[in-house]
Design a binder for these strands. Structure first.
Lengths: 225, 225
DNA sequence: TGTACATCAGTGAACGCGCGTTCACTGATGTAC
DNA sequence: TGTACATCAGTGAACGCGCGTTCACTGATGTAC
């Protein structure tokens, strides 16, 4: 009990316990500080408190560590989006907008993850696990789009849900990466990214013929009906 | 005449002539090859054929060179968009869609410029020249949006052109950075990025109440009216 | 419960390398007279 | 037109540094008996 406390930093003398996770965490901190391209293997080792040779027990090289960060990011992203979607409760349009907000919140609150996922240039096609994780996250947006498409009123042709999901994803990603970052590279905006996205989605859905009220807690400055 | 030919590589013995441009070009090649974070000052010097100390005559450090690349990128981007817009000829909607295509074409054909502009993490607020160049490029999209807004039929409330421009920019950038790159980090798509963007813009404009035909050479798979 | 042993996850020293940066320098160019 | 001189844009050698990577090693842990 008590003697454990003074060993917090390094559990046993030699064995770290979960160096792998510690390295991922160190990489996250370094990416947040200096960008996705700006962290080194040696630095991650140092800030995890181990010798420069230690990481080689867990990762072949820097890229494999970066891929681990990205994969963890996709998994957390998926769970955040899933929670926001909440299986379409209380109603599909409200849940849909909530997913958009969750998207932007993730990009803002986990810039290092987001960066590793979307801006690090990691090849997806040579890393099946990463590709799967990425697709599972996108699947949430796609599932939400399916449900929305199914709501199409009689007489309105149903748009392809895949295309719709791709539009929503692209718009969200565009807003997140242009305006939604905490750092200095973020561009100024005369409104919040959330409002910009919500308004864009409303207009887009209206263009598809969906008669969506903006009742669901929206205070975005969209043109009045 | 003839003796000039054998001096192609280095114009005079000592004076390079336009080393500054040569370094920007070298940086572009290196960024295209290894990403925005993956080029070094020394490497740029080497591939421009000068000693490692030479670049210091023209750039304070690596970041200043990168900023030059980005600025040149914004300027070329602006001129490409301006040409595509062609002051709204032959008609505003057709020209608008042409700007979208030009956006994606630029991202695809100048990935190194695009990367330096949007993904290098260069701070805009500490570099006024860069900020101005960036805003001048965006101003094209905004001007096109103004003209489109002015076309609103009677009875349709006019949306804020700035918001509209931000939506279009975000959607374009999202599609370009997720799907529109040549490299391995680009995601697969069941249609061309151009078609995806065109369809998205059409739906968006319809959502704003603009009765736009898709006459202008479009063959995107959008839901039929 | 003890002991022997295999395995595992770390150490730390060492290496070669390329980078960023500086320095005194030098050859080429432009200009005053 | 010729000469002297200032300026400019490059050289190349040198430096300290941190990185990536390897190596034989060693302490801790788990397991067979």
């Amino acid at each position: 009990m008590s003697w454990r406390k003074e060993r917090r930093r390094r559990e046993g003398g030699y064995h770290h316990g979960n160096l792998k996770e510690a390295l991922v965490q160190a990489a996250l901190d370094l990416i947040a500080e200096k960008g996705a391209g700006g962290f080194t293997f040696a630095e991650a080792a140092r800030s995890a408190g181990v010798s420069p040779a230690a990481p080689y027990r867990h990762f072949r090289d820097r890229d494999e560590l970066l891929a681990s960060v990205a994969q963890q990011g996709y998994e957390q992203f998926e769970s955040v989006l899933t929670a926001a979607w909440d299986d379409g409760r209380p109603d599909t349009p409200a849940a849909f907008q909530r997913v958009g907000k969750a998207y932007l919140a993730f990009a803002r609150e986990h810039p290092a993850h987001y960066s590793a996922m979307f801006e690090s240039g990691l090849p997806l096609d040579s890393n099946p696990a990463l590709l799967v994780a990425s697709e599972r996250a996108f699947a949430i947006i796609r599932a939400a789009s399916e449900r929305l498409v199914a709501m199409a009123p009689p007489g309105v042709p149903r748009p392809p849900a895949l295309m719709m999901a791709l539009h929503i994803w692209s718009l969200s990603h565009g807003i997140a990466s242009l305006f939604g970052r905490g750092d200095a590279a973020s561009r100024k905006l005369p409104m919040s990214p959330e409002d910009l996205l919500e308004a864009g989605v409303l207009i887009y859905l209206k263009g598809l013929g969906f008669p969506i009220d903006h009742a669901a807690g929206s205070h975005a400055s969209t043109p009045k009906k």
